[in-house]
Design a protein around this nucleic acid. Structure first.
Length: 747
DNA sequence: AAAAAAG
């Protein structure tokens, strides 16, 4: 029996479409006097809408009234009077889409009429995107980047003046070339030759012959190097501070600063092997961040069996020092991790810097404050000015370090600038797109960015799969400024001609390294190719590595690379433990672990196992739900919401929930199956310890797996004790929090 | 193995 499309009782969908649940007033209700059934007004409505792009396209199709038009027949309904139950099936979302879009339009229009409150004046003075010729031939025959002309916006004004002095510093190692060029053509300059690197040092080697494999065997050396270099966690155990996060509860600045300071020190020690090359004099720039000397990030490909091999997180900066050490990264054999060389900047938080100082307009700043982000986190302080300046940016910030705002806020600012003085036209195509690997993440990003965008009169919409596209298309028809979505549906709509990215000047990839994995890159690449020529690209992730090279090569021009010094696991608030167990005890131990008070997130490797575990917990009297790709979107959303709202305390998920998902108070992450990749470990464990809270991560493994696990943790730079455990061992009680830990007692 | 499109 084909499940009714209508959600049971119509209620569950409330979670899913909260914004549209309310009563709907149709356009025609308001303008044609009195409610008219969708179908009934077919004739008139159809005509009225004919030239009106505001109407959802799909409307016509099923709007057509069923049944007869003459009174004597079954199914006939009088045109005006009747408000009887319409066919809800498609209607609900469709209408919702229309209504929302209508709202968007109305607001936009009224905003236009009555001098937009949000437009802040000084801002309209700023440079804006040049008008570009409309779409003409953007697909397929779109010129290669070489042809892209100086359409690039010049950087913004104000902060740039103040900060302009800092900027060139990034480019010290031969990159200062940039300064020779007119600011307005900064990007053009880089692409006017074969592969935009002409004589730029540091680029040559990486470009080399379309992929020379260089420095092959040095990888091993490097990896070891890095590991040894890493300071022991114990050294610092005592003064670990709580990590910070974007969430509601923003940690005090003081501690942030403290952390940053220590981070720097640590950083220094870490890199001390670099000797003279790394004097770290760190002259103050007087700005929000200080620029480290440029660090060419060079890596290359070489074969190594270890799939997890990574260039070490200390990393980009510390380890990529080909010039001095000759060492090269040694990424996995099977993955072509190209060099991702670029100068890198370590951001340091400086007291007193505000979002406003970074170049954001007052409305945005206020909104941020309202969201609990009073002052910028390091990653934000570093990347915001660069984004505003129109640069391509690669940024790595630990899980929960505020990446969404780091790209979202300046993105909004920039879109706003690009539209300053223009009216937001009806049906305009989006100016920016943000891509995320999962639907939940796309939703979450929208939740953060939408208020920021709205505060300046811009509109966002989500474009992701698993839900009817009508509403999304409807919103696009009205015109949105910022699209947030997942690759599949985005590409789908592009191909359907319903999403036009030709005017999209900023593209963001969240979880960029993940988006660059096999199977993900291709659609992403295709999507990016649809964006405006020379569009600005921002790549963010907690584990950004050379995996993004494929994209960087094709799409980024002289990217600024940022990471926050000292932002490693050692300074985090997460406690990691590994339980070595007998396989036969696994189920019971898991049940025992999740039988607790706080919120627990359990990761399983497969969907089936996730389901199984959720059921198992449920059967044991512990309410649990699952989250994985086998569930329909409504269930996914609902189940996640159940955890968020606290209706259940246990969520069993596949890696769909590993990245980005923010639930405030998960205090225990259980890995029922150990991850295969260190990055996965980092992302999974990053679901806890957010917002400065403490968190605990426990991984169950069998004895046979110990070695692999050791290696993985090593790469993740995490120190975790391995403990043998049986079903009723105290460790389990302790981890579950049913008995105080030794640490708790001493504390 | 998982994720990402299917009115």
């Amino acid at each position: 029996m084909p499940k009714n499309k209508k959600p049971r009782g119509g209620r569950p969908s409330a979670n899913f479409e909260p914004r549209y649940g309310a009563k709907k007033t149709s356009f025609h209700d308001r303008h044609n006097g009195g409610p008219a059934r969708d179908g009934a007004r077919d004739e008139r409505g159809g005509r009225a809408d004919a030239g009106d792009r505001r109407t959802a396209p799909a409307a016509g199709g099923y709007d057509r009234r069923p049944g007869s038009r003459s009174a004597g027949h079954r199914g006939y309904r009088p045109a005006e009077a009747e408000s009887g139950a319409p066919k809800q099936r498609w209607g609900a979302s469709e209408r919702a889409g229309r209504d929302e879009a209508r709202g968007i339009r109305n607001r936009a229009e009224s905003g236009r009429r009555e001098a937009p409150h949000h437009r802040n004046d000084e801002r309209s003075e700023r440079p804006r995107f040049n008008d570009r010729p409309t779409a003409g031939g953007r697909f397929g025959d779109r010129p290669r980047r070489d042809d892209r002309g100086g359409q690039r916006p010049t950087g913004p004004g104000t902060y740039r003046d103040e900060r302009g002095g800092d900027r060139p510093r990034f480019e010290r190692d031969g990159r200062a070339r940039r300064d020779d060029r007119g600011a307005g053509t900064q990007r053009q300059g880089f692409r006017d030759n074969d592969h935009r690197d002409g004589g730029r040092p540091g680029r040559d080697d990486r470009r080399g012959a379309e992929r020379p494999r260089f420095g092959n065997d040095r990888g091993a050396e490097r990896a070891r190097f890095d590991r040894d270099e890493r300071p022991r966690r114990d050294d610092r155990a005592g003064d670990r501070t709580r990590s910070n996060d974007r969430g509601a509860a923003r940690p005090e600045r003081s501690f942030d600063a403290d952390r940053a300071r220590r981070a720097f020190d640590r950083d220094r020690t870490q890199r001390s092997y670099e000797g003279g090359r790394d004097e770290r004099s760190r002259p103050s720039t007087g700005g929000a961040y200080r620029t480290e000397r440029p660090r060419p990030l060079t890596s290359d490909t070489r074969g190594r069996p270890a799939r997890n091999e990574r260039p070490s997180r200390n990393d980009w900066n510390a380890t990529s020092r080909p010039a001095s050490t000759g060492a090269k990264f040694a990424p996995g054999d099977d993955v072509v991790h190209e060099r991702l060389e670029a100068k890198s900047v370590a951001a340091v938080e400086v007291d007193g810097v505000t979002f406003g100082d970074l170049g954001l307009g007052s409305n945005i700043v206020e909104t941020l404050v309202g969201m609990g982000a009073a002052t910028p986190f390091p990653i934000q302080a570093a990347s915001i000015p660069a984004v505003l300046a129109g640069r391509d940016v690669l940024a790595r910030g630990r899980t929960g370090s505020g990446k969404t705002i780091a790209f979202g806020a300046p993105l909004v600012e920039r879109v706003l600038q690009s539209q300053a003085g223009k009216r937001r036209e009806f049906g305009r195509s989006p100016r920016a797109i943000i891509l995320a690997p999962t639907r939940e993440l796309a939703l979450q990003i929208d939740r953060t960015i939408q208020p920021i965008a709205r505060s300046v009169g811009l509109f966002t919409t989500q474009i992701y799969g698993g839900v009817p596209q009508g509403r999304q298309v409807g919103a696009l028809k009205k015109g949105v400024d910022i699209v947030i979505g997942t690759p599949g549906r985005v590409e789908d709509l592009i191909n359907q001609g319903k999403l036009d990215l030709s005017d999209c000047r900023i593209a963001v990839l969240d979880e960029a390294d993940h988006m660059c994995e096999l199977g993900f890159v291709e659609p992403v690449q295709r999507i990016l190719r649809h964006t405006a020529d020379g569009s600005q690209k921002l790549l963010f992730s907690a584990t950004l590595d050379r995996e993004v090279a494929a994209l960087v090569d094709e799409f980024l021009v002289d990217p600024a690379v940022y990471e926050v010094a000292g932002e490693d696991q050692d300074s985090s608030t997460i406690e990691h433990r590994v339980l070595v167990i007998e396989h036969r005890d696994k189920a019971d131990i898991l049940t025992s672990l999740v039988d607790r008070d706080g919120k627990t997130l359990v990761f399983a490797r497969t969907r089936a196992y996730a389901d199984m575990l959720a059921e198992q917990f449920d059967d044991a009297g512990i309410p649990a739900v699952s989250l994985h790709g086998d569930l329909n979107q409504a269930k996914r959303t609902r189940n996640l919401e159940r955890l968020t709202s606290g209706r259940v305390n246990v969520l069993v998920a596949t890696d769909v929930a590993a990245r980005g998902i923010h639930v405030d108070d998960i205090d225990l992450v259980v890995q029922a199956d150990a991850p295969d990749e260190y990055k996965t470990y980092l992302h999974r464990s990053g679901r806890t310890g957010r917002a400065g809270r403490s968190g605990r991560v426990v991984t169950l493994i069998t004895r046979q797996r110990q070695r692999r696990m050791t290696e993985l943790l090593d790469r993740a730079e995490i120190d975790a004790p391995f403990e043998n455990a049986r079903l009723d061992d105290d460790v389990i009680e302790e981890i579950a929090g049913r008995v105080p830990t030794a640490a708790d007692l001493t504390a």
